[in-house]
Design a protein around this nucleic acid. Structure first.
Lengths: 154, 154
DNA sequence: TTTATACTTTGACTATCTTTGACCTTTTAT
DNA sequence: ATAAAAGGTCAAAGATAGTCAAAGTATAAA
């Protein structure tokens, strides 16, 4: 008998393969109910099994009619991401490295010239931050959020 | 099945696109009746979805023959500058206003959908900053740098 | 077999978004 | 003036989801 987390993982992955849209929407509480566990267990499964490195994107909304949406990335995007995931998940990234990644995205025709410049401009704005540590952290988030946005609407 | 507020938002936006005059007049109580909710729900939708920053103007009148008028502002650069002059001067801007500006730039066809999303993603990343003051300042720079870049390479 | 380490499960507390209702103000009709 | 007919405000309640750290379990190393 496998554990709860593995069971929930399998269940969600199965739903995903059955889904035509490439994503599924679930209710955290309902899912927890189905597996007879606390709702936060769902978060655990999402955090450990449906990560970016593994090719998944998770979005959610709170409040009435809220949801958790799990999206399976296309293989091509996964490959692309593989190159950056390491930088992204460490959470911090140097300016040079960040600009290198943007250049790479452009070379791969994944973003337009204007888009690359937009991303670079965003990086520029971080230069007014005195605290170098905060700067690196923020740069990591900036890059990650922009990249995820591109992927989400690919 | 989406929630009440989203449904009402969609309904009103649809009416707006169908309207030749550029605005629609509704009766708060009637609308609430159609959606089977309390009248103040209408206010909630107006306050969260039809704000000035998002390019809408809401006027109303009480008493007999009362109404609520929702107008989609036509975007123009002049218009935009007027609306955001204060932010530009102070160099600080709230999240809502920043997103509104981006939306308006997109309405104006100054930026593409992807570009607008990139800019929004950049804004997202600032949310990890605890210090609200620093956050507002940084947001100002971020927006300014991205905007200048767009202009420079227009 | 014990111990150390990694993985899983739980629950209390928090954050966010939505819905409702009681009470308030303005405008019009008589 | 007054009553009737709108619309407005605000705070509480409801509906979800997120975080974090403690407690429980399984696995690997000694």
């Amino acid at each position: 008998m496998s554990n709860l987390a593995d069971g929930m993982e399998d269940y969600l992955k199965k739903l995903l393969t059955l889904s035509a849209s490439g994503y599924i929407d679930i209710k955290r509480k309902e899912l927890a109910g189905k597996f007879n566990c606390v709702p936060s267990q769902v978060n655990y499964v999402l955090e450990t099994r449906f990560t970016l490195e593994k090719g998944y994107l998770v979005e959610s909304k709170r409040g009435g009619k809220g949801f958790v949406r799990i999206r399976k990335l296309q293989a091509s995007l996964e490959n692309l991401l593989d190159m950056f995931v390491q930088d992204i998940i460490t959470g911090r990234i140097s300016d040079d490295r960040a600009r290198g990644l943007i250049q790479r995205l452009y070379d791969l025709k994944y973003i337009s010239l204007r888009e690359s410049r937009l991303m670079e401009a965003a990086l520029d704005s971080l230069n007014i931050i005195k605290d170098k540590s905060l700067q690196e952290t923020l740069r990591g988030w900036l890059l990650k959020d922009m990249l995820l946005m591109l992927i989400k609407f690919a």
